[in-house]
Design a protein around this nucleic acid. Sequence first.
DNA 1: ACAAACCATCGACGGATGTCGAAACACGCG
DNA 2: CGCGTGTTTCGACATCCGTCGATGGTTTGT
Lengths: 124, 124
Amino acid sequence: MSNPKVLPLIAPESGAVAPCCPPLTERPFTAEEAETAARMFRALGDPVRLRLFSAVASHEGGEACVCDISDVGVSQPTVSHHLKKLKDAGLLTSERRGTWVYYRVEPSVLASMGKLLAVAPAAA
Amino acid sequence: MSNPKVLPLIAPESGAVAPCCPPLTERPFTAEEAETAARMFRALGDPVRLRLFSAVASHEGGEACVCDISDVGVSQPTVSHHLKKLKDAGLLTSERRGTWVYYRVEPSVLASMGKLLAVAPAAA
DNA sequence: ACAAACCATCGACGGATGTCGAAACACGCG
DNA sequence: CGCGTGTTTCGACATCCGTCGATGGTTTGT
């Protein structure tokens, strides 16, 4: 498919993480930074998506087939819908291998969000 | 006011942080954990709220008057609306001192969210 | 070729959410 | 007490979002 709408939350090929924004406590966010960061938080702001993401993230090998994580209390199309949202937000990537589609987490985005929430060590 | 709807995201008087959930990578979230954590992420999932939160968090003294952070491009009632949401989510607290109302961040919640996103050190 | 399993897309529906103006409330001051 | 300033609440509106059943596409096996 090669989805063209995927959001460039990170620099794809850079070795170091390229965080979108400074820590929340460093300075007031600009409108652009807020827009970018809010997309990530919103992607995790749904219980079903959070369960799916956690299921993938904690699955052995760092990846999971859809059939392994579909038991979250909603219909199969809804699961697919949420996985697409997580993918569009840059939090997951997907790959088809034969019959199954495997999702895996994008660790650099996770790290980027973690830095956002890093508590400033008493700045100033 | 003593809002009765404030969510008990953390144990209020405990010295140590009482995180709602394990790291996302540790094991699949239960429905309850997902519900709780999603509330926090959703609260930060709006650009205006993120700017307001960042403005408070980065303000000198760790607190800010509403009048200091109201310049985010929306009307003043909307600012108040978003501040209430952040407060209901447990991310901010408010206190009236004379004419002005001051908001400050709840650092333990920030730390709790940071732990959620902690990248597992290559488990297995 | 056909059937079955897995997954994605489509179209529709109801409820949640962001936004505003107007009005109400709280406080300090003259 | 009355006024001005700062902040919240109210009511209304448009839009977004999560959910479903039905359908379509892709791959494997018979």
